[in-house]
Design a protein around this nucleic acid. Structure first.
Lengths: 146, 146
DNA sequence: GATCTTGGTGCAAATGATTCTCATTAAGGA
DNA sequence: TCCTTAATGAGAATCATTTGCACCAAGATC
C-alpha cells in the first residue's frame, strides 16, 4: 500500500465518500504518469478498465482537494496536473517558444511568501508560480534567426 | 494620447498589423475597466459600437503580446485579464471560499526570482504568482460554522 | 485623394474541454 | 445479507473560445 493510497482513503472516509474501484484506478494512473498530465491522457491509460472520462473529470478535483495532485499549468486549452506528494513545491519556467517547462526549487521564496501571508492573515493552500519567457536555448535561437 | 495607445500603435506597426477602430475600442475599454475583466465583460462595453465578440477574442492576445495586459486568473471557466501598464507586478491571493482576489507587492520576491532566472539563463517575460487558500474573513468563518 | 493590396471584421457555425443527466450499479455500515 | 445512498458509464448538454467566409477598410503608393 502506497502512501498516496492511504491518504486518499483517509480523505474520502473523512468526507463520507466511497473508495471505489474507478477512483483507485484514477489515483494509480495519476501517480504512474510523469510530471504533467491532463484528463484525456489519464483516461487513455485506464479506459481499458472501463473507467469513463466523466469519472476521470469527477475524480481529479477530489485528488486536488485531498492534497495529492495540483493544477500545474493550463496549456493549449487543457488543464494539466502534477502530483504533489513527495514532490516539493517549485517554480515553473515555461518557455513561450518551445513550450518546455522547467522547474526549480521554491525554498528561496517560501519565507517571503509566508511573511506576506501572515501579515494579511491569509491561510495558504496552494502556491502556483509560473514564469513565462524564453528558455536558454530559445533565447539563443532568437539572436540567430531574427 | 495615452501611453498605452502609443505602445499598441508601435507594436502593431512593428508587426505589420493595422490599427483599426475596433482594436482601438478594445484597448480603450480594457484600460477603462477595473483590475480584472473577461472577454464578455469587455464586449458588453463596446458592442454598441458594433464590435463583435470575435474581434475582442482576436484582440486580447495582441494586447498580451504587446505587453499591455496579462492573463491574471482563470476563474469559473473564464480567462480574466488585467492591465500591466502602470500596474506593478504583484501576487494574487485567491480565496477558495469567497473567490475574492487580493493583491500584494512582488518586490520581496523579485530578487530571488531574478537570481534563479540568471542561474538557469531564462529570459523572464511574465511572472504569475497565484496563491489559493482562505482569506482572513473566510478562515474565521470556518471555525464558526464547521 | 484615388487606387490597390492585404489584413481585419462581423456573423454564424464549429470546436472541444468540461459538466450534467439519468438509469443502473456497488460501497460499506447495520 | 440487506439497505441506503453515493458513484458510475454513456451520451447529451454547456459554454468559452476559435474559425470560415464574404465583405470592408487601413494605409502604402502613385
Amino acid at each position: 500500500m502506497q502512501e498516496h493510497e492511504n491518504q486518499f482513503r483517509d480523505f474520502l472516509k473523512q468526507k463520507g465518500l466511497k473508495l471505489t474501484k474507478s477512483r483507485n484506478l484514477v489515483l494509480e494512473a495519476a501517480f504512474k504518469l510523469h510530471e504533467h498530465f491532463d484528463a484525456e491522457t489519464l483516461y487513455s491509460h485506464i479506459r481499458a478498465a472501463n473507467v469513463s472520462l466523466a469519472t476521470v473529470y469527477r475524480t481529479l478535483p477530489l485528488l486536488v482537494e485531498a492534497g495529492l495532485i495540483q493544477l500545474a499549468v493550463r496549456s493549449e486549452g487543457r488543464d494539466r496536473f502534477e502530483h504533489i506528494l513527495g514532490h516539493p513545491k517549485h517554480v515553473h519556467w515555461i518557455c513561450e517558444r518551445c513550450k518546455q517547462v522547467a522547474e526549480t526549487d521554491l525554498s528561496s521564496l517560501q519565507e517571503a511568501l509566508d511573511a506576506e501571508a501572515k501579515s494579511i492573515k491569509f491561510q495558504i493552500g496552494q502556491i502556483t508560480i509560473n514564469i513565462t519567457g524564453l528558455c536558454r536555448n530559445c533565447s539563443i535561437d532568437e539572436y540567430e534567426q531574427d
